[in-house]
């Protein structure tokens, strides 16, 4: 199903094949008065099994970059390849699962039926889809909630359902656009921990957009710091943190040093001594 678990992320990052390749990608919106450079000559390689966070202030193009990789936006220059295919082909080949900032669950479907949705669209047999959905709900700790409707669940639980839904069809790449941005900090920590364990178990390629320095440092094997006007990559930081992570790690000097490096990177983009994350 997925690469062996013995490898350390650092070894993975150097040897694994490239999953997402972005070459001098630009995206310019034509507005009434001036063109807006949402992305300017962005280049980035993401290897299989990496957990890459895109971080930066609003307008830095981190979500745009994710949406470009997911074929939800089209670049105006450069090249993007996902598993060697164009984003459009990759989307049609169902190469990735996408988790939005909001859970986007269908209110008329039960939790189980929501997780079954992508499998149903792929035309999988109903019994198989249901078995997979039940298993995925178990992995995000929601066994017993199958027959509930989304509005009967808390925000954190809803977002876990949407993660289960994205994982259901075993996508090679998981893309997450500030998935925990709308949640309170306690729920957020909890879900960060769960996501970290999930990644440890399955080692899928994850591209993760966030505002939060702590979240990026805690989860990622690599952190991409971006800056606005024009949207561009300032700095790519390889994580020196160990493979196995718990929330306690956030109090270690190593973690703090890394967080500091990210904050410095962000401040550099602002040209001020003021961090962009909050």
């Amino acid at each position: 199903m997925n690469p062996p678990e013995a490898l350390s992320p650092a070894a993975d990052a150097r040897t694994a094949p490239v999953a997402v390749s972005v070459r001098r990608a630009s995206l310019v919106y034509q507005t009434a008065d001036t063109p807006v450079h949402a992305l300017s000559e962005v280049s980035l390689d993401i290897r299989q099994g990496e957990f890459v966070s895109l971080i930066g202030p609003s307008g830095c193009g981190k979500t745009t970059l994710l949406r470009v990789i997911a074929d939800l936006e089209q670049i105006t220059g450069g090249e993007v390849l996902v598993n060697g295919m164009t984003p459009h082909e990759a989307r049609l080949a169902r190469a990735y699962g996408y988790v939005f900032q909001a859970p986007a669950l269908f209110p008329w479907r039960t939790v189980l039926a929501n997780v079954m949705l992508p499998l149903q669209i792929q035309g999988r047999p109903k019994a198989e889809a249901e078995a997979v959905a039940r298993e995925q709900l178990g992995r995000v700790g929601l066994t017993g909630f199958e027959r509930k409707y989304p509005w009967q669940l808390s925000g954190g639980m809803q977002q876990r359902v949407s993660i289960a839904r994205a994982l259901g069809f075993e996508p090679k790449i998981l893309m997450m656009d500030e998935p925990f941005g709308a949640l309170d900090e306690i729920t957020r920590d909890d879900l960060n921990d769960q996501l970290q364990q999930l990644w440890q178990r399955e080692r899928r390629t994850v591209v993760f957009v966030t505002h939060s320095i702590a979240e990026a440092v805690y989860l990622s094997t690599r952190i991409v710091v971006m800056s606005p006007r024009p949207g561009r990559i300032l700095k790519v930081i390889d994580s020196s943190l160990p493979d196995q992570r718990t929330l306690d790690l956030r109090d270690t000097p190593e973690f703090m040093a890394l967080a500091h490096e990210v904050r410095e990177g962000l401040a550099h983009g602002h040209g001020q001594g003021h961090g962009g994350g909050h």
């Binding site: 939800l72 989307r91 939005f100 986007a104 992508p118 149903q120």
Partner: peptide, 19 residues
């Protein structure tokens, strides 16, 4: 966001209508 969700699943127009 709901339309885009189905878009990421490469759902057909008919599926988007029905689902």
């Amino acid at each position: 966001i709901e339309t885009e969700l189905l878009h990421t699943y490469a759902a057909s127009r008919w599926q988007a209508f029905w689902l």
